[in-house]
Amino acid sequence: DRIFMTRTEALEFLLKAHQTAVDKIGHPSHKQTPADHAAIEALDRLLLDVRARRVDQFQINASAAQIIVTD
């Protein structure tokens, strides 16, 4: 599946995904793992790359739809 978004929409989408990941590892019942921190770092890099126009398409994980940034 493909989803087309403007750059602004894609950045909002990534910010929400980032916040969800941060909230998940901050929850008291969740045991933090290196994979959790790696996922947040990957989202940080992706946010910067989309914002800087170095990336025009991405996929958060293998089961997610491919996001295509349109400007």
Rank of each mutant, 00 (worst) to 15 (best):
L11T: 05
R2W: 10
E41M: 08
L11V: 09
N61L: 08
V69E: 02
P28G: 09
G26A: 04
R45E: 06
L46K: 01
K24C: 05
I67S: 00
R45L: 10
T8M: 13
Q59H: 08
D1N: 08
H37P: 03
I68F: 12
I60N: 01
D49K: 04
R53N: 14
L43T: 01
D1E: 08
A42E: 13
Q19V: 07
A35R: 06
E41S: 10
F58R: 00
D44N: 14
G26E: 08
D36K: 03
S29E: 14
D44R: 14
I40T: 02
A17Q: 07
D23A: 11
I60S: 03
T8Q: 14
V50T: 01
R51Q: 11
V50R: 00
L15E: 10
M5Y: 02
L47P: 00
F13K: 02
H18K: 14
A62C: 08
D49M: 08
S29I: 03
V22A: 08
L15V: 12
S29W: 06
L48K: 15
F58M: 01
D36A: 04
T8Y: 11
V55I: 14
L47V: 12
R54L: 03
Q59N: 07
T8S: 13
S63Q: 14
Q59A: 05
E41D: 10
L48R: 06
L46S: 00
P28W: 02
K31S: 15
H18G: 02
N61M: 09
T20D: 09
V55C: 05
M5N: 00
A21M: 15
R51K: 13
T70D: 08
E9L: 05
N61R: 05
K31V: 15
A42F: 15
K16Q: 04
Q66H: 06
D44I: 14
R53K: 15
L14V: 04
R2D: 06
A62R: 08
I67N: 01
A64K: 09
L47R: 05
S63G: 06
T33Q: 04
L14A: 00
A10V: 04
Q66Y: 09
A52D: 14
Q32A: 15
L11Q: 03
A62H: 12
Q59G: 03
S29V: 04
R2C: 06
A21E: 05
I67E: 00
L43H: 00
I68Q: 07
V50H: 01
R45N: 11
P34D: 13
A42H: 11
I67Y: 07
A35D: 12
Q66G: 02
I25L: 07
V22L: 12
L11H: 02
R53H: 15
A42M: 13
F4A: 06
V55M: 04
A10Q: 00
Q66P: 08
A35V: 06
R51N: 09
E12Y: 10
H18I: 14
I60G: 01
H30Y: 07
G26D: 09
D1R: 04
F4S: 07
V22D: 01
I68W: 12
L48E: 13
F58E: 00
I3Y: 07
I40D: 01
D1G: 09
L47T: 05
F4I: 09
L43Q: 04
H37D: 13
S29P: 02
Q32C: 10
L43M: 08
D1C: 10
S29Q: 11
A64L: 11
D56F: 12
L11A: 03
H30D: 08
V22Y: 08
A64D: 12
A10I: 01
D36C: 03
V55P: 01
L14I: 13
L46G: 00
V50Q: 00
V50A: 01
G26T: 14
P28T: 05
T70W: 12
L47I: 15
D49N: 06
F13A: 04
I67G: 00
D71H: 08
L11C: 07
R7D: 01
E9H: 06
I67T: 02
L11I: 14
A39I: 13
A21Q: 07
V50W: 01
T20V: 13
R53Y: 15
I3Q: 07
H30C: 05
D23T: 07
T33G: 08
A21P: 01
T8R: 08
I67L: 02
A64W: 10
D49W: 04
I40M: 09
P28V: 08
V55H: 02
A17R: 04
E12N: 11
